[in-house]
Write a protein that binds this DNA or RNA. Structure first.
Length: 206
DNA sequence: TAGGCCATCTGGTCCT
DNA sequence: AGGACCAGATGGCCTA
């Protein structure tokens, strides 16, 4: 886990992001989400393949996409490629031919629909991460947790909560005790890697 | 400028 | 057959 930025001396008015605050992109993401929902509806109406019937666009061709050179995604959809006559090798010709096939409108429409679905899926994952960030303890002005840090801290937090439950102690005194005595217990290893007790010391337990 | 993080596109695989 | 899920590739942004 990378170092977590935290400076107790830091002026609260500085521009360090606090995870509890609204993500500056949140509003934009919501708008994008709405847009994607609309697009999904539209793309559902489009139904890329149905609009072209059940007949394959490539009746004679079984495209071997894995054989294609990995063109930089999103930068060459195949439609911009010049028909150079310099490459005579059959393999090269086959590749170019395949790229041209991929540039056919039905494929592009289906791909575009898949991209929209994928973006929507990632948005839902990200919103779940946002929700999770709100449930893990952080320092008051700690930098917004990355996804991987959020997951690791959540795991550590759950482990600590389980220990507190098993101990039957008061949570605050349990954390205080851990801070005082250090990490003698091997079972603490799971959660003490995240400075969790230090973070928890900032929680108002009442 | 390098490295971390992230969004996006993409093709393959699995599932319904 | 089509959608969900996944991982790789890529480029942009930000920070030390």
């Amino acid at each position: 886990m990378e170092d977590v930025f935290f400076d107790f001396e830091q002026d609260p008015t500085t521009n360090f992001a606090f995870w509890g605050q609204m993500d500056p992109n949140f509003q934009f993401q919501n708008q994008l989400d709405t847009l994607l929902l609309d697009c999904t509806t539209v793309s559902g109406q489009l139904s890329p393949w149905s609009s072209f019937g059940s007949q394959s666009v490539f009746p004679d061709e079984q495209l071997t996409l894995t054989d294609l050179d990995s063109q930089s995604p999103g930068h060459d959809d195949g439609g911009t490629e010049a028909d150079s006559s310099s490459a005579d090798e059959p393999a090269e010709i086959s590749k170019r031919r395949a790229r041209r096939m991929l540039a056919h409108p039905p494929y592009k429409i289906q791909r575009h629909a898949a991209n929209i679905r994928e973006r929507k899926r990632m948005l839902s994952i990200n919103s779940a991460f946002e929700e999770l960030r709100c449930h893990v303890p952080t320092f008051p002005y700690e930098k917004r947790l990355s996804k991987i840090d959020t997951l690791r801290l959540a795991i550590a937090y759950i482990a600590l909560l389980r220990e507190i439950l098993m101990s039957g102690c008061d949570p605050k005194s349990y954390v205080d005790e851990c801070m005082k005595n250090g990490y003698k217990n091997q079972t603490n290893a799971i959660w003490n890697t995240s400075d969790l007790t230090a973070r928890l010391s900032w929680i108002k337990w009442d």
